[in-house]
Design a protein around this nucleic acid. Structure first.
Lengths: 201, 201
DNA sequence: GACTCTACAGACAGGTCTGTCTACTATCCG
DNA sequence: CGGATAGTAGACAGACCTGTCTGTAGAGTC
């Protein structure tokens, strides 16, 4: 009874022990594995083993694999937008608020386990027109709306055009950071954003 | 014997009939399916069925699935760089040559079957440090060298910095075109590239 | 005509995948 | 105590995966 802690995420039934519920452990496990190896590559069995959770729990909680993927993407969506908003809120001047997005992105890149945008990876092999594509569309339109608002407040003469340009840079930086395994691309992206902002006034 | 043309890619042995060898048909089939559904999702069986080729031929010609993926990526690499070079060579002025890259990219986006950069998709679920990642690295460093050369010739004060910025835009445009299913992003990218070029002189 | 090369057809092994199902159990709440 | 809740363990079906193997056949070459 005392010697029960065999695996890191082990628990004494009912999701107690480390305080995390089966749902939390599954989501954490899925996030880790999906990020590292991709949604298609990682199977259910590996996720539940790593989480120390029964397969039935996964299907009770998420319905099927796609449900788990959606939850994983939703959590990422919320986390990323929260991060960006927090970085923006640290500044008053519209110019600094806009550029703060690219600084927050740089912090993300520097995280040791950064493996690129989850939506980009997930949609690469997902069926077209499915729920995963929809989740990605939602995420992207939210980011675009954010850039449009920031561009307006910064006084761009054509805020939509600037917003599109900024999103291209945001996307490109995220992609380059992953493909080249080079977080320093964020400073390049910030500089480019600044130049485009100046030119748009 | 006369009624032998059942499937589109059917042949009368020895790669004759439609003139394409087993290798060509496999590569065309793999390209079509990989582009549409992803490297992990598409299995060997579907490729050979679609190509009208025996499984043994695939393994004789490419060794294994990874070999086929590499050939697919190599063909894409050559095709894309050739396209870009051709677009560049149509102009004399260094400025126009540089911007021609983004115009060529726009043409690519407008192709009906555009599904984003194959290297981005393939590396999303490929094992790290493997041959696929290597192929992507090669491709990217070649594109970077191209941008650096164009930036030098266009008279940028810091050609490397401009090249990195341009590659970010190039990457971001390709990603946005796929994710948003919107080829018009190419004109946004071209405009951004022009602004950055002007600012870099 | 014999030989070699290239290709086809398809069975097969061994493994992995998702998703379902049965049976059991610890904890909490009333 | 007695149920409800939330979980565990693991067998199982059915599909699909990669890769190997055997056998056959057309076409060019000597």
């Amino acid at each position: 009874m005392a010697t029960r802690t065999l695996r890191p995420n082990q628990t004494t039934r009912h999701g107690a022990a480390d305080g995390r519920s089966a749902r939390e452990r599954l989501l954490a496990s899925a996030t880790e594995l999906f990020d590292a190896q991709g949604v298609q590559t990682v199977g259910i069995d590996r996720i539940i083993e790593h989480a120390g959770v029964a397969k039935a729990s996964l299907y009770n909680l998420f319905g099927n694999k796609e449900g788990l993927v959606r939850a994983y993407l939703a959590a990422r969506h919320d986390g990323t937008t929260a991060r960006l908003m927090a970085a923006i809120e640290r500044h008053r001047s519209p110019r600094k608020r806009l550029l703060a997005v690219f600084e927050a992105q740089g912090e993300l890149f520097r995280a040791r386990d950064f493996r690129g945008c989850a939506f980009v990876a997930a949609t690469a092999e997902a069926p077209r027109g499915g729920l995963i594509e929809r989740a990605a569309d939602d995420y992207r339109s939210q980011i675009r709306a954010l850039f449009t608002e920031l561009a307006e407040q910064a006084g761009a003469s054509d805020p939509r055009k600037l917003a599109r340009q900024l999103q291209v840079i945001y996307d490109g930086a995220g992609l380059a950071a992953r493909m080249d395994r080079d977080p320093s691309i964020a400073t390049t992206a910030r500089a480019a954003a600044e130049t485009l902002l100046d030119a748009s006034l």
